[in-house]
């Protein structure tokens, strides 16, 4: 790939190896072609997956474990290994009625893998206003997070 073909104007920077004008090969720092051209589609796909799973979750069809598993693109086997349980046991946790019987240490293990506070396994945080941003800050208590709705302008 020629150096000029690799140049992409984007804030997400990566290193590509290219052919320079003098015929030598070497690295250049450039933007991501994917991010520059297909990012909106990627986000749209993620949003559509999230919305359809959220619908199922709110209707009581799946448990929050199933919701986050799909959202993060984890397989049953991988998630089970990460929370240190069998796949058979994990499958039970994907059902809402079994999820309701889970103890706190088990929920903490799931929350850690999903990268969310334990509280988020029981709530959905959304904001209808584009000027509002929700932030969650950890506290010294591992079970408590402070959720704030902050307003910000589009220029920030």
């Amino acid at each position: 790939m020629k150096e000029e073909d690799a140049r992409v104007d984007d804030d997400y920077q990566l290193v590509l190896y290219v052919e320079r004008d003098d015929g030598t090969y070497g690295p250049i720092q450039t933007g991501s072609y994917m991010k520059a051209h297909y990012f909106a589609d990627y986000l749209a796909h993620r949003r559509s997956v999230q919305e359809s799973e959220l619908e199922k979750l709110c209707a009581g069809g799946i448990s929050p474990i199933a919701y986050y598993m799909t959202w993060l693109g984890l397989s049953e086997g991988d998630l089970a290994a990460r929370v240190r349980i069998s796949v058979r046991r994990l499958r039970k946790h994907l059902r809402p009625e079994c999820f309701a019987a889970l103890d706190l240490p088990m929920l903490q293990r799931y929350a850690e893998v999903f990268g969310v506070p334990v509280a988020n396994l029981f709530q959905v945080l959304t904001s209808d206003s584009p000027e509002m941003r929700l932030t969650q800050a950890k506290t010294a208590n591992p079970l408590v997070v402070v959720t704030r709705a902050e307003s910000f302008s589009a220029h920030e």
Binding site: L14, Y17, Y25, H45
Partner: peptide, 26 residues
């Protein structure tokens, strides 16, 4: 989405472009 992931796997996931082939050519 999975088709687009082919692009991500080959270009964006720390490969140096073309699924490490440019890196190996260098």
């Amino acid at each position: 989405h999975e088709m687009m992931m082919i692009h991500v796997m080959l270009e964006d996931r720390g490969t140096g472009g073309a699924g490490f082939r440019y890196l190996y050519a260098t």
